[in-house]
Design a protein around this nucleic acid. Structure first.
Lengths: 183, 183
DNA sequence: TTCATCTTGTAGTATCCACTCAAGGTAACG
DNA sequence: CGTTACCTTGAGTGGATACTACAAGATGAA
């Protein structure tokens, strides 16, 4: 089915509206009316461009999962501190709406098998990057030990992120920085 | 409002039905009709005994958490290991279906103000218990230091729980145990 | 300009949901 | 037994939801 230019533009507006709403009201809270109101289109337009509401939501969610991966340009050289800092920036920076979507999904949304696999894959990739950074900085560390530390740091960062979203007074950066110091 | 014995029995049947359903179909699948059908009561009975559906769900979750509490009476002798173990039991034990619901509810605090306040309050209480246990075991630790460690351990446990739900092969108990050892 | 094709808004439809209400039934107690 | 409270039923209410039908308008290739 060929698309006119106006159609593709409308599609983009709908996706932007969906992304914003997902961050604000959560996956459960997103209704068709909310999307179409915010995008400034009628329901007919929406269904001309998407099969179902779920299709639009999944398209945004896929983006969110991909966005969690830190900038790939540093692979192989980045330090653990770089990775932690990138995570903090991702959560507290401009993309925090996307981050919120990802956390919701990871913590609760995974009834969908394919999405669960996608999230797991991205988690694995992240653990590997953290693990490699640890191994580079502490060459004596065993591979298993490095991976376990990577899992622990990522888990703590995830937990901190949730706390920060729920309690804006929580000093996310400071707690994250502590993860880098020995006890 | 006094309750008759039959009323309290019906209340118990409703809670059992709710607990089973939460484990089987998740929070989305739990409808009032599903609960009342399974409990074998009419909607009117339900609302004679509970204010809202949410109340019944929250009561089930609260019960599940209380069931693993290492120090239900609040004596204050629980160790950090006890607390960590209780968390692990809650997540991986029989009530793991309910634990999933608990995580979902916590995640809904990311977008729902009312739920955020609720989650924050219980988070605070838990941090205090972890902090006090740490302070008892390491009397030299400063209050701030102990609280920061408590936050970190809880955040890591939460993160591990999420990982475990996404990846059943993840060894939650082993990773949790590592949190108790110095690096 | 023509016209097939796409786009748009609106006014639905069907379905589901939490929750209410009123009236009759039952428990507790003196 | 009589009285007061609580319990139970289930049809019904109001509101929200995703999605559709359709007529009218816009687009763009020839």
């Amino acid at each position: 089915m060929g698309r006119y230019r106006v159609g593709l533009e409308t599609r983009e507006r709908i996706l932007v509206a969906t992304r914003d709403l997902l961050g604000e009201v959560g996956i459960e809270g997103v209704t068709l009316k909310a999307i179409t109101d915010r995008a400034g289109v009628g329901a007919g337009s929406f269904y001309n461009l998407f099969e179902t509401k779920e299709q639009a939501v999944l398209e945004v969610v896929r983006e969110a999962i991909a966005a969690v991966d830190p900038d790939p340009s540093g692979v192989g050289r980045e330090s653990l501190a770089d990775l932690v800092e990138a995570f903090v920036r991702f959560i507290t920076g401009e993309a925090s709406g996307i981050a919120r979507i990802y956390l919701q999904l990871a913590a609760s949304g995974l009834t969908d098998e394919r999405m669960a696999r996608r999230v797991l894959r991205s988690h694995r990739r992240r653990v590997e990057r953290f693990r490699d950074a640890i191994a580079r900085e502490h060459p004596g560390t065993g591979a298993e030990e490095a991976e376990a530390r990577a899992e622990a740091i990522l888990a703590a960062l995830t937990g901190f992120a949730i706390t920060w979203f729920i309690d804006p007074r929580f000093d996310f950066a400071a707690h994250a920085a502590r993860l880098l110091q020995p006890r």
